[in-house]
């Protein structure tokens, strides 16, 4: 019975010393938490695509590189890792809408003020939406895929999706565009631990110092340029002698 008091805590502490390998039983007797119970963030690991097929990945990489093009200000979305970020996010609780309310019925005519009412999870949204986009491109551009299009054509397709001028077969193009744009920006500006924002390129673009956690000197000295480089949850590449 999970029933906790200070007395139980003391008793449980003694128990820990004697029998360190039965954490579940101790938790039930002691304070309402176990050591290291709080979970650290799950970082993105390098390696092959975990959710996207090769064709899907090529399309997403091409899209994120148009949404955030490489130029003199920053690397593009592909080199920043935005597609990797989206792939890894889709494999986690975000991808399945595990934390959201997904019980029906799903209204066919929700008001815009009532928010998302789709039965599709992000994984399904990407799978269905990218398939519909591939079909559209094949039909409009003589069998070419989105990644094979010239950048100007890619921009025309993306603009058409954004404005609702292009109608995909079987999927809402505005919703597909909105999801990819939001997730791309998340990847570009989230902590690099999640696979995007490589070398904190998104943070360097705007001048966000990341996780420094103490700006008393900045507040005390207003209107001065901030010059220190950003730091992420994993530190900085140059802190690690073997950083590649």
């Amino acid at each position: 019975m999970p029933f906790f008091t200070r007395r139980h805590l003391l008793a449980a502490t003694a128990l820990v010393t004697l029998t360190p390998h039965v954490p579940t039983a101790q938790a039930a007797l002691g304070m309402p938490w176990s050591p290291n119970e709080a979970y650290p963030p799950t970082g993105a690991r390098p390696g092959p695509w975990l959710y996207f097929t090769a064709d899907e990945a090529a399309t997403v990489e091409a899209i994120v590189d148009r949404l955030i093009p490489a130029d003199e200000l920053s690397p593009g979305g592909r080199d920043a890792g935005c597609a990797v970020f989206i792939d890894r996010q889709l494999t986690g609780p975000f991808g399945s809408h595990e934390w959201l309310y997904m019980q029906g019925p799903f209204s066919a005519n929700p008001l815009p003020s009532q928010g998302i009412q789709s039965p599709y999870t992000p994984r399904q949204q990407y799978r269905l939406g990218l398939a519909a986009l591939a079909e559209y491109c094949r039909g409009q551009f003589g069998g070419k895929t989105f990644p094979q299009l010239a950048p100007a054509d890619q921009d025309r397709v993306l603009t058409g999706l954004e404005k609702g001028d292009i109608h995909l077969s079987g999927y809402n193009g505005v919703e597909l565009f909105s999801a990819i744009l939001a997730n791309t920006m998340e990847g570009f500006f989230a902590d690099p631990i999640y696979g995007g924002n490589k070398d904190m390129c998104g943070w360097k673009l705007v001048g966000f110092p990341g996780t420094r956690y103490d700006y008393r000197d900045v507040i005390a000295n207003p209107n001065r340029p901030y010059t220190l480089p950003p730091i992420s949850i994993q530190g900085r590449p140059d802190w690690n002698r073997n950083a590649g």
Partner: peptide
């Protein structure tokens, strides 16, 4: 434990 300074400043999460 839950708001550890090493992991607390995480906008995405």
């Amino acid at each position: 434990t839950d708001f550890n300074i090493g992991t607390a400043p995480d906008e995405l999460r």
